[in-house]
Design a protein around this nucleic acid. Sequence first.
DNA 1: AACCCGTGGTA
DNA 2: TTACCAAGGGT
Length: 378
Amino acid sequence: MGGKDHQPIQAPEEEWIQAVRKKLLDWYDRNQRDLPWRESKDPYRVWVSEIMLQQTRVDTVIPYYERFMSLFPTPGALAAAKEDDVIKAWEGLGYYSRARNLHTAVKEVVETYDGVVPDDPATVSRLKGVGPYTTGAILSIAYNRPIPAVDGNVFRVLSRWFALWDDVTRTSARRKFEELDRLLIPQDRPGDFNQALMELGALICTPVSPACADCPVQEECQAYRDGIQAELPVKTKSKPPVPVRMTFGWIRKGPQVLLQRRPSEGLLGRMWGLPTVETLPEELVPGGTLRDHWAGHGLKLELGPVVGELDHVFSHRRWLITLVQGLCLAEENLPADCAWVEEKELEHYALPNVYRKAVRMALDPPQSSHGFQQGRLF
DNA sequence: AACCCGTGGTA
DNA sequence: TTACCAAGGGT
């Protein structure tokens, strides 16, 4: 179309830029939140916080960050840790490949860069799990380098300030917003400026009903002048998660419960969980056998009653889960990806929340579950 | 470019 | 209940 959504950035007047910088930084100095990762500018601490904050709320991250930093206070400590311990510290945060990539990248920093996070954007951006945003965040906050860090907040704030109609979900938008950020970012306080943009987006320039009355740069906001705050930023709607029927097994052998490691690729890859099959619950009637579903695993299982149902939504998939009890009748050889675990030992395994919820349900079954048969057979 | 990868809060 | 979304990155 060639509408104004693809117009090149028109550089603002230098005087205007100076004024906006001062207003935003003054506001940030007075209103920034007291967050644990702001206690120092240690590049490692900044790095860990930025990885945890990817697609994750500040309030959710805080307790994880505190725990993670006391477990792994330095790059050396994290590099020396076992992967299972790192994943355990990440348990419940989601997007578990973030933890594995961070672990891999920190080991590389320890081995290749003597434990010092490189002060160079090209080198940092090559580390696993560090993309364009995180590169800019680490370099600007920890090393005072004037490099853009465009996240969802910055997309929102800048699209409103300058009334930009670019679809921010498209790759081309990132380059444009980074160029704009580059024009605005001050040489003396680049890290504070980037954080101020994000803080403004988090506290004032919110996605829904922004607090324009309290905004330090209201006078400079084109969207506010035009009354179009609610229309920006433009984002392509994401597809709803695809529903999938799943069955979890709560399989007992005496005091033990069966756990299974998930396949290395795909959703919850390599995480521990209850034995899981993608199947219709009708095939798993009480008294039936699960042997067909775990054929070749050397286990002979008999199904018990349905414990209950769970509805768990991931970013692109939705599991409609039936939790069934089972009994191990015979075991020839335990599959390599399976383990018998005492109930009290379950807490030592890193289980994604969907499995934690199922374990909770198995240990404390609902009294009524949509008319399903209930009670513990075994 | 399109799709994949978790979870919890909120309207 | 659905829909959106929160300091994104990998493939």
